[in-house]
Amino acid sequence: MADDKSKAAQYWSTNLRLILGSLVVWAFVSYGCGILFRPLLSGISVGGTDLGFWFAQQGSILTFIGIIFFYAWRMNKLDKEMGLEE
């Protein structure tokens, strides 16, 4: 447990902001680029098809990996900064 309440509250609100930001990217690449905005991206061609198809079949998965490692790196650093690591 944190030494004082405000530090704990700060830790948690930083975490929530980070999660929210990550979820925006998560939704943007899959539901956005992969599904809903595909017609808008149809002008950008990638290997015989369009960018939306690439996001749906590969791009979103690659982005998901990036999001998780970014989140893990950022939170593990925050744990240490706040003295909350194990």
């Binding site: 980070l18 990550s22 979820l23 899959s30 749906a56 979103s60 998901f64 989140y71």
Partner: peptide, 14 residues
């Protein structure tokens, strides 16, 4: 493809 991988983002953060 998206559905069976995107869940790991939720798992990792939530």
């Amino acid at each position: 493809l998206m559905g069976w991988t995107g869940g790991y983002v939720l798992l990792a953060m939530l």
